[in-house]
């Protein structure tokens, strides 16, 4: 006997848990495909979360909150872009400090929002369709950002492989010298990619403080930015695999909780570590295979570009 309403509720929980990872990881895919490794995702998510909460609190509109969270993440990406793209500062170190800065700054901005109940993103309700058992709540009863994240996955997949812009982006990420010699603006493309990554991470953070748990507290991202970074590697820089990976990571956590509730003896510590373990395994598989390594990893990832002229 399958209890369909319960299965639907579980699927809904998984989608909610996965969406912030998906949004943030999609942005990171674009940034890394252009050759920029941004380890500041956690910080940009935190800023996105607090911006979204603050804007919703001020205006009463979750839509304004969603927009503000994207803008917040993007703003935090600006100093990062200046440092690593224009001044060729080490990307790893700058990204790490961006995370620290973002977490600290978000705590400061969010000081007065601690203990204030938030407003939840409204869920779609289409009369008739949303009431169909199982399919209704899963397909027609989510909030807007969930649908947006799926559309964004498809759009980025199309952009990277089917559009001229995507070709330029990948060229910049794979060989910035050649791209430069072809007359492409390496710095311009990377700026755009980093800003886009910031906006996506901000949205992921906004989903936390508006959709997932409508509240603000310091450190509420709780390491999700790092899972998103790991997810990009796990997905070998492909948007469709990012989507699968995000849902897989979400599902593992949620099903782990259900297993506990049903009294199955799966160590919960193991479940908590699983996303990282999975990433390590994928890294081992990728790095053991030179062809795969070449095919997937942007060749200029993490390397600064200094135009000769």
């Amino acid at each position: 006997m399958v209890d369909w309403p319960v299965v639907a509720a579980i699927v809904l929980t998984i989608v909610t848990a996965s969406t912030p990872l998906l949004l943030a990881a999609l942005g990171e895919v674009v940034a890394e495909r252009s050759g920029v490794l941004n380890l500041g995702v956690e910080g940009m998510m935190a800023i996105g979360a607090v911006s979204g909460f603050a804007a919703t609190h001020a205006t009463g509109s979750t839509f304004a909150g969603v927009i503000a969270s994207a803008i917040g993440g993007m703003i935090l990406a600006v100093p990062f872009a200046v440092l690593v793209i224009n001044l060729s500062v080490n990307q790893v170190a700058t990204g790490l400090s961006l995370t620290l800065f973002g977490l600290g700054a978000s705590a400061m901005i969010g000081d007065k929002y601690v203990g204030v109940p938030g407003i939840k993103l409204p869920q779609l309700h289409i009369p008739g369709l949303s009431d169909i058992p199982f399919i209704g709540p899963v397909l027609f009863g989510q909030d807007g950002l969930v649908y947006f994240s799926v559309v964004l996955t498809i759009a980025i997949g199309w952009f990277l492989t089917r559009s001229r812009g995507g070709l330029v982006l990948r060229a910049v990420g794979d060989n910035h010298d050649s791209a430069h010699n072809l007359g492409l603006s390496v710095l311009g493309v990377r700026w755009a990619a980093v800003l886009f990554g910031g906006a996506c991470a901000g949205l992921g953070g906004g989903y936390l403080s508006l959709g997932y748990t409508p509240l603000w507290t310091e450190n509420m991202t709780a390491g999700r930015g790092w899972i998103a970074v790991a997810l990009v590697v796990f997905a070998s820089w492909r948007p469709a695999r990012v989507l699968v990976g995000a849902y897989l990571f979400g599902a593992v956590t949620i099903l782990g909780f259900h297993a506990q509730g049903m009294g199955l003896a799966i160590p919960s510590q193991f479940i908590s570590a699983l996303p990282y373990l999975a990433t390590v395994v994928v890294l081992v598989i990728i790095s053991g295979n030179k062809a795969m390594l070449r095919a997937n990893t942007p060749a200029c990832l993490g390397k600064p570009f200094v135009p000769t002229r």
Partner: peptide, 16 residues
């Protein structure tokens, strides 16, 4: 302290 995870655990309990 991880609001998201805490919420997920709570949802799992209510689903059960």
């Amino acid at each position: 302290f991880d609001p998201g995870k805490e919420a997920d655990g709570a949802k799992a309990l209510f689903d059960q």
